[in-house]
Deep mutational scan, measured.
Amino acid sequence: RLRTTITPEQLEILYEKYLLDSNPTRKMLDHIAREVGLKKRVVQVWFQNTRARERK
């Protein structure tokens, strides 16, 4: 399986959204995914991984 490459522009948007809410609802994930042009599951995993990194 190929990994999804997230561009610096997409990362910037994702981090902005993360600062507003680190645990977004399904509806918010849909909205964020459309905004950055990624699949909802990719955005969901990015948020999970970012939360895990923050806990370390």
Rank of each mutant, 00 (worst) to 15 (best):
L19A: 09
W46V: 02
L20I: 10
L11A: 10
Y18L: 04
M28K: 03
Y15A: 09
S22C: 10
R53N: 12
V36R: 00
L11C: 01
K17Y: 15
P8T: 04
E9M: 08
R51W: 12
Q48M: 08
T50G: 05
L2G: 08
L14F: 02
I6T: 03
R53C: 12
R3A: 13
T5N: 15
N23Q: 12
K39G: 13
T50Y: 09
A33I: 08
K56V: 06
Q44N: 09
T7Q: 06
L14H: 01
R1M: 13
V36P: 02
L14S: 00
K39V: 11
V45H: 06
Y18I: 06
L11W: 07
V43A: 04
Q44I: 06
G37C: 11
A52T: 05
L19P: 00
A52W: 05
K56I: 06
L2I: 09
R3C: 14
T4W: 05
W46M: 01
E54A: 04
E54I: 06
K27H: 13
M28L: 09
Y18T: 01
E9S: 08
E54G: 05
T50K: 12
K27I: 06
L2F: 12
L19E: 08
L29Q: 09
K39Q: 12
Y15N: 13
R3K: 15
L11M: 10
D21R: 01
R3G: 14
H31I: 14
F47C: 00
R53A: 11
V43K: 00
E9G: 08
L38R: 01
R55G: 13
H31N: 05
R41Q: 15
K39L: 13
V42F: 11
H31D: 12
Q10G: 02
L14R: 01
R53Y: 03
S22K: 06
R41S: 15
D30I: 10
K56F: 02
V45Q: 03
E12S: 12
V43T: 03
D30Y: 12
N49Y: 04
P24T: 00
T50M: 09
E12Y: 04
V42T: 07
T4P: 12
R41M: 12
I13M: 10
M28V: 09
R34W: 08
Q44L: 09
M28S: 08
L38N: 00
F47K: 00
H31M: 08
E35M: 06
S22Q: 06
R41G: 15
D21M: 02
L29C: 07
I32E: 00
D30Q: 09
R26C: 14
W46E: 03
R55I: 12
F47N: 00
G37Y: 00
R26N: 15
F47G: 00
R53S: 14
D30H: 06
R41C: 12
K39E: 12
R41P: 14
H31F: 06
R53T: 12
N49S: 11
E35Y: 04
N49P: 02
Q44W: 11
Q48H: 08
T7I: 02
L29R: 05
N23Y: 10
G37D: 10
N49T: 09
I32M: 05
T7C: 06
Q10V: 06
L38S: 01
K39D: 13
G37I: 01
K39R: 09
V36K: 02
E54L: 07
T5Q: 13
Q48D: 15
I13E: 10
Y15Q: 13
I32H: 03
L29W: 11
P8E: 14
G37V: 02
H31T: 14
A52L: 07
P24N: 02
Y18H: 01
D30T: 12
T4L: 08
K27D: 15
V45D: 14
R41V: 12
E35I: 08
D21K: 02
I13Q: 14
F47H: 01
R53D: 14
I32T: 04
V45P: 02
F47V: 00
F47P: 00
V42P: 06
R34F: 09
L2W: 04
I32Q: 00
L29Y: 07
Q44K: 11
Q48A: 14
L19K: 08
K40A: 14
T7N: 07
R51D: 08
E12H: 05
Y18K: 03
P24Y: 00
N23T: 07
L19G: 11
R3N: 15
R3V: 13
F47S: 01
E54R: 03
E9L: 07
R51G: 08
R34E: 14
V42L: 09
K17W: 03
V42C: 07
S22F: 08
W46I: 00
I32Y: 07
R34D: 03
R41F: 11
V42S: 05
R55T: 09
K17H: 04
K17D: 05
K56G: 14
E9N: 08
M28W: 03
S22I: 04
H31Q: 14
I13R: 11
K56S: 11
L29M: 04
L14W: 00
S22R: 05
K17F: 03
R3S: 15
S22M: 08
P24D: 02
T25C: 14
L29F: 10
K40H: 07
L38C: 06
R3W: 08
K40Y: 15
L2H: 05
R26P: 07
A33D: 03
E35A: 07
V36Y: 03
L38E: 04
G37W: 00
W46P: 01
Y15R: 14
L14T: 00
V36F: 03
M28A: 11
F47E: 01
L14D: 02
V42G: 03
H31C: 12
L2A: 10
L29N: 05
E9F: 05
R3P: 11
V43G: 00
E12I: 15
R53P: 05
K40L: 15
S22N: 04
K40C: 13
E54W: 05
I6Q: 01
P8Q: 07
T25L: 03
L11F: 08
E9I: 07
Y15V: 07
T5V: 12
I32K: 01
K27G: 13
L14A: 01
E12D: 10
L11T: 14
R34N: 14
R55C: 12
K56Q: 03
E12T: 14
G37H: 04
E9V: 08
K39S: 15
Q44V: 08
W46L: 00
R34I: 04
T5K: 05
R55D: 15
R3E: 14
L14N: 15
H31W: 09
L20V: 11
L20A: 09
L2R: 08
D30R: 08
L19R: 09
P24R: 00
F47Y: 10
M28I: 09
S22W: 04
T25N: 08
L14M: 07
L20W: 09
K17M: 11
R3D: 15
M28C: 10
Q44T: 10
P8A: 13
R34K: 12
R51P: 00
I13L: 09
V36G: 01
L20F: 10
V45K: 06
Y18P: 01
V43M: 02
V42N: 07
E35K: 04
D21L: 04
I13F: 10
P8K: 06
N23C: 02
A33R: 03
L14E: 00
E9P: 07
I6H: 07
K39W: 01
L14K: 00
D21S: 04
V43N: 01
N23E: 10
V42I: 10
I13G: 07
W46Y: 02
K39I: 01
S22T: 10
R26W: 14
A52C: 02
Q48G: 14
Q10S: 03
K56R: 02
T7W: 02
T5S: 10
E54F: 12
W46T: 02
K40M: 14
G37M: 04
K39T: 15
V42E: 15
I6P: 10
N49C: 06
